[in-house]
Design a protein around this nucleic acid. Sequence first.
DNA 1: CTGGACTTCCTCCTTTTGGGGGAAAGCCGC
DNA 2: GCGGCTTTCCCCCAAAAGGAGGAAGTCCAG
Lengths: 207, 207
Amino acid sequence: MSEPIRILIVDDHHALRIGLAAMLSAFPQFLVVGEAADTEGAIQGCEHLAPDVVLMDLRLPGGGGAEATLRIRQRWPQTRVLVITTYEGDEDIHRSIQSGASGYLLKGLSSAELAAAVETVHRGGRVMPEALAIRFKEREQRKDLSGRELEVLQRIVLGRSNKEIALDLGVGEESVKTYLRSLFHKLGVADRTQAAIEAIRRGIVHL
Amino acid sequence: MSEPIRILIVDDHHALRIGLAAMLSAFPQFLVVGEAADTEGAIQGCEHLAPDVVLMDLRLPGGGGAEATLRIRQRWPQTRVLVITTYEGDEDIHRSIQSGASGYLLKGLSSAELAAAVETVHRGGRVMPEALAIRFKEREQRKDLSGRELEVLQRIVLGRSNKEIALDLGVGEESVKTYLRSLFHKLGVADRTQAAIEAIRRGIVHL
DNA sequence: CTGGACTTCCTCCTTTTGGGGGAAAGCCGC
DNA sequence: GCGGCTTTCCCCCAAAAGGAGGAAGTCCAG
């Protein structure tokens, strides 16, 4: 038999780490070499344990799973990252893939699905459930928000008025209104409240 | 040695069920008698397995953990329900306790904490982490929203205008504005966008 | 170097929102 | 039955938000 696939589990929930480890341990071809609960731990785990595949949660203390994924993929390009998280929004899938993740799975998957996914990404393949693939494609077709539009949107989600945002960004209120109209169109909404909700729903801005 | 404490695990995430079961299995005084992934399964589990303690996630397909908790506590008052979930907002803690839960814990707890909590609630005690207890007290001091105020707030989170809400509820627009002003005061916010965000943050309305 | 995007601001205009206060009717608890 | 809350609506008013279109500068890619 060949070498086992070395796996690092990154999740801030102890119970979930235990569960994923237990699910994988039922298969002889996998070896869980370590666990981490935050971004720093994930980087150190890669450094010392040389995992083939990292199971990564997106909600992490210390900078989010996407950032951790990016750093891991830059330093260890042969290490595959498989995101396993609750569905957070189209934008999170997009960011994960952009950061170099090989796949995106939902917590709640079965042992068989998990095992198949790990093997696929280890062979260099990509993995995404049908339902998420659809959302992912939708996201890809959408235009990105510009820098200013994103800054305005973030402040909308903080409940700021146009005047406050203008002051905050150091521009005129009319400019803020221009960015707003533009991002309303891009998001397909009619007003700031819908924009805030859509931003949260898609994961463009986290609460 | 006395009878083991019989435990039912209710969570829609397979990995988490495995993890919690594994954590509990390390202690001889606990016996995981079953698992369920939704509300119906939880009820049936109580019917057939007579658990002493139910570990309950709040995010469940088929009506939310609070409803399941209520139904379990009504039919089997001696069965204790311990909510284990990611933090969803003050309102969810409040609803859980109102529904008859004996405690509210965060996923990510250690085995020792879990074991201690299960034993405490089995003895009839209550359990809540310090951080959550503070939020819970804050919630208790707040005035409840009235029926109309809640209906208006739900529609605000759907991005509806005053006119649409008025039409929807079959009242005049002026009435809607009255409810809005009132709920702005109760939530401590200045406009509808802040109200929507605060409603989501507190768990009053789920996205 | 040209076209397209982003950034910034402008004018003009309409609709929406939100604040204040008042008031009548109904219901519930003590 | 009285006080309090809720529901419903009214008035007046000011501020904020949003829609349309134009315009100029920057900056990058083809």
